[in-house]
């Protein structure tokens, strides 16, 4: 189990979901992915992402100048 931090602040194209995907490829069940993003589209996108992949969104907060999402990896096939 590990906390993997993905800092996608200032990333517009191809965007924070891409950074999340890259980290998710290497992650294992039980890991926490912590994504920081500035792109306002990230909020609905990450919600759609967890719904589709079946992982768990444990936190989604708007800080002063960025959005923070924590995802518990539960749906990786082993």
């Amino acid at each position: 189990m590990a906390v993997i931090r993905v800092d996608a602040r200032g990333m517009a194209c191809p965007g924070p979901i891409s950074a999340l995907t890259k980290a998710y490829r290497k992650a294992k069940n039980g890991d926490i992915l912590e994504v920081l993003a500035t792109d306002p589209g990230f909020k609905p996108d990450v919600q759609a992402w967890v719904k589709r992949t079946g992982n768990e969104l444990t936190e989604l907060t708007e800080e002063k100048d960025y959005i923070k999402a924590s995802i518990k990896v539960t749906a990786k096939k082993t």
Binding site: A12, C13, P14, G15, I17, S18, G41, D45, A48, W49
Partner: peptide
């Protein structure tokens, strides 16, 4: 595609 939409930019 890896993106939420049909292109990376909405």
């Amino acid at each position: 595609l890896p993106f939420p939409h049909a292109y990376s930019s909405k």
